[in-house]
């Protein structure tokens, strides 16, 4: 049986015992070439993008789309080989993905609102010299 093989690297990592997966020997795809789990690529970036998509007004659709695309790539990589990546990192990726979707929807609504105001109300160009314009 493949599962009863010793772990792939002859010397398992001694530094951090928390990074070892205790279920590694029970999983069908136990072939973990690194011997320790790594972060899902771009998980941190997707999380930051998702949060910035909501907070930065007007850029929500752009940042949200970037976050969604990057999270799609990361999710595919994780599902191809789940035992290779940390689960907490995958949760970060999922949270970033959901934040990106929320930011995208809100941002699209804001853009529609902008267009409506610009079309029906706009054309009254005011100066930006007053303090309340910032």
């Amino acid at each position: 049986m493949e599962n009863q093989n010793p772990p792939f690297p002859p010397n398992p990592p001694q530094g951090n015992p928390y990074q070892q997966n205790p279920y590694q020997q029970n999983q069908p795809m136990g072939g973990n070439p690194m011997g320790m789990q790594q972060d899902v690529p771009n998980a941190t970036l997707v999380l930051v993008m998702g949060i910035c998509a909501i907070v930065i007004c007007g850029l929500g659709p752009i940042l949200g789309t970037i976050g969604l695309v990057m999270s799609g790539a990361g999710k595919r990589l994780y599902q191809a080989n789940p035992s290779m990546y940390k689960e907490s990192s995958f949760k970060n990726l999922n949270a970033g993905r959901i934040c990106s979707i929320i930011g995208l929807c809100l941002g699209v609504l804001v853009w529609i609102y902008y267009i409506v105001v610009l079309v029906f109300v706009g054309a009254a160009i005011q100066g930006a010299t007053h303090y309340s314009n910032y």
């Binding site: 007004c57 007007g58 804001v110 105001v117 109300v121 009254a124 930006a128 910032y134």
Partner: peptide
């Protein structure tokens, strides 16, 4: 050196992010 909101500059309406820097 605050960043001016282009939406408010054009229309005079606040956008959802106006007021954050103040």
């Amino acid at each position: 050196h605050l960043l001016a909101c282009p939406f408010k500059y054009i229309t005079g309406f606040d956008c959802p992010g106006c007021g954050l820097q103040r």
